[in-house]
Design a binder for these strands. Structure first.
Lengths: 245, 245
DNA sequence: TAGTTTGTTTGGTCGTACCATATTGCGTTC
DNA sequence: GAACGCAATATGGTACGACCAAACAAACTA
């Protein structure tokens, strides 16, 4: 009698790994808050008693959860529980994306997607920004202006200015997207030399964008944003000495 | 002689796990093509000879790479090498995103981001679509029309129609984004009842979008897209019986 | 030749052991 | 009594060896 005829077992046996159970349970405990965020996980030997399984399984589960971003494990320390937000989620792909960026056109594709996204952002801002948003944007612009002489501070205020744009639609996903762009593109940005001259040019661009938004002119805002980012891209490309991106 | 006195030990020893070396090596081999995509990895016992290490380390490395998306491992089969593309990258976040969706407003945020993204897509299509793009869109629309009576086929052609929009900017990231949206939102879509009536309404929306694009009218295209997706959302929301999304 | 059986390979799990480092706790010293 | 230093312990990282069950491959039978 073969297994086939025997029991009307599941048509498909669920190939369930023991580790999966542990993973699932821990996952639920983390997401439900039973395991508090930012606190260390119980020790491995504790968990193996708890789940009545071997350390192998526990360690595999920890590795998996760690790679999924629900745990943060440093070499010789207890893993830290991390209830992920959208930022962490996007962060989890950073490894895979890193490779894509190293391929031909990878960075350009990502940068173009950013331009595409921010174009839509400034249109949205120009047509739907609240008074508070405009004020916030104005303040970010002012801070940007005062940092023209200080390239480090300029970069920070630059990011902050764009960050306001990402917040205006009030969708928590968007700021996470910005962080992802920053994480993935900044390594390339850092290669470009900074100078007050460039800062001034960029500030002027920000000013144009802001004014267009303030005047509720989506087309002008989009155009300003595009020329701003395209120019920055050209600058990066040239600075990197024709490196085939 | 202890290891301490012996080697001119680094001021900071890089907390290098043995598994990391294996991971790095395999990573390079996969990305460089030395390990061909879609082929099975060598057996674990083979790898442990190759790297002169224990199976423990090999398995940890496999688990890590698997979670990073460079390997695809089914329960009792050899892991399959997968050189990741953007789709795989976004796929890697699906786990974390899944939980976010279950929280209040999660699905709505994601859906809104899709609306936001596709708004920009149709604008782009209306202003920059090539003749071929328009033709492709027309064909997708025709296929959509012929599937109104068949809800399953309608859904497929619906996705395909939107898919053309994602391809028009010719950025490989975008189709990956669409796949991610489909994967994350379709579970909710499946809850809604389908009917030729709804299909007809949706088809009409697609038609409006197409015509606006054909006439190179970004504003009209955007408006048509927004009303299309917002209506679909309302329908989902109502169908789900006020479930707090 | 087709289908079955048997033997081997291989991934999944387990237990134990050992090392190096973190952590803890105790005892010394000021 | 508090601060410091040092030893004991706890804990994570690695390794070895074993067993099981499923998958795979080969031999075998009808």
């Amino acid at each position: 009698m073969t297994a086939k005829e025997n029991g009307m077992t599941f048509p498909k046996k669920p190939p369930t790994r023991a580790a999966d159970a542990v993973i699932a349970t821990l996952e639920v405990q983390i997401m439900s808050g039973a395991l508090v965020s930012d606190t260390p996980l119980p020790t491995e030997r504790e968990l193996m008693k708890q789940f009545n399984t071997s350390r192998t399984v526990i360690r595999e589960a920890i590795a998996t959860l760690s790679n999924r971003g629900l745990l943060e494990s440093k070499p010789r320390f207890r893993p830290i529980v991390r209830k992920p937000d959208y930022t962490a989620a996007l962060n989890a792909v950073s490894g895979a994306v890193g490779h894509l960026l190293s391929e031909r056109g990878g960075v350009k594709n990502l940068y173009e997607s950013r331009v595409f996204f921010e174009r839509a952002l400034v249109r949205e801002a120009a047509s739907a920004a609240r008074r508070d948003d405009v004020r916030e944007l104005r303040e970010a612009l002012a801070a940007n202006a005062q940092a023209i002489d200080d390239s480090d501070r300029f970069h920070a205020t630059d990011v902050a200015f764009h960050g306001v744009l990402y917040r205006i639609p009030r969708n928590p996903i968007f700021p996470a997207v910005q962080k992802a762009y920053i994480a993935w593109l900044s390594p390339h940005r850092e290669k470009m030399l900074r100078s007050p001259d460039r800062n001034l040019v960029n500030y002027k661009s920000h000013e144009r964008i802001f004014l267009a938004i303030e005047e509720r002119d989506p087309d002008a805002a989009e155009e300003a944003l595009v020329s701003h980012l395209r120019a920055a891209w050209e600058y990066v490309r040239v600075t990197l000495d024709q490196e085939p991106l």
